[in-house]
Amino acid sequence: MATVHVENIKKTYDKGSVLALDNVSFDVKSGELFGLIGPDGAGKTSLFRILTTLLLPDGGHAQVAGLDVVNDLWKIRRIVGYMPGKFSLYQDLSIEENLQFFATVFNTTVEKNYHLIEDIYVQIEPFKKRLAGKLSGGMKQKLALCCALIHEPKVLFLDEPTTGVDPVSRKEFWDMLDRLKTRGITIVVSTPYMDEASRCDRIALIQKGKILELDTLTKIIGRHAQNLYAVNADNRYQLMHDLRKPAEIESSFAFGEEQHVTLRTPENGENYLIDYLTQTGHSDITVRKIDPTIEDVFIKLMLENQ
């Protein structure tokens, strides 16, 4: 049975004028690390708040560990851990006071479940007397995760835990999630960083309240094979402009040091691009046919859904 079951969930704001979630359905399996990947405004936070019983849906059903998010809210609150996107701990309590507070609220002790948080907590323990409001972003993030874990939840909901965090700390955070997963905790995590998709068992790509795709990363990428070329030349600025002009070019987007280009007519794409760029006066031209990244797929799906 699915640990999280979401069925046609709908949510609107401002008397129905803003559609935040548009009949969203998906299941998260027990023990899975499931990623909701999408930009700001996609509906990720609304979905998390519904699943953690903090917001009522306008329509549809959802269950967490077999419990209904509307009718069984008190039972759900006991078994889920929730780390909101906005830092929500008590700023005027210290690290250890916050942790004790959350343990007490859930009728447990820090000692009883210390094993769950140990490898995260040791990193902030030297500062345990410091007020939460005085912590740096990375330390706040670690404390929030400890507080969300201290009652040994069955399901952990993490809303954009890595937003605004540098690449090294992001990587460390995902390593922590990997270790939590080995303890059997089901984790649902949202992120706007597409590259974090590779850290999840399965992902849902979400945009404007709709799920665009849902599967393992490999399968999603496999489903969206396209004639994609990585293009480079000496004058990047000019290259970006010139790749926008011809009707044969369907899309051209910057990806790191290269432009990723798709063509309307798939035949001889490499030759076409080299010829075109040579004619327009570019030098040091390189064109490679490549497999899409998850970000290429997301862009493709966004364009299709426009």
Binding site: G38, P39, D40, A42, E160, T163, G164, P192, M194, Q207, Y237, M240, F253, A254, E295, F298, I299, M302, L303
Partner: peptide, 24 residues
């Protein structure tokens, strides 16, 4: 200062187009 955090991949690139134009 982190101008593109959280925005979708197309908008993020459109934003960089604007940066390129400004630099140009």
């Amino acid at each position: 200062d982190e101008p593109t955090g959280g925005v979708d991949p197309i908008t993020r690139r459109q934003f960089w187009d604007m940066i390129y134009e400004a630099a140009h």
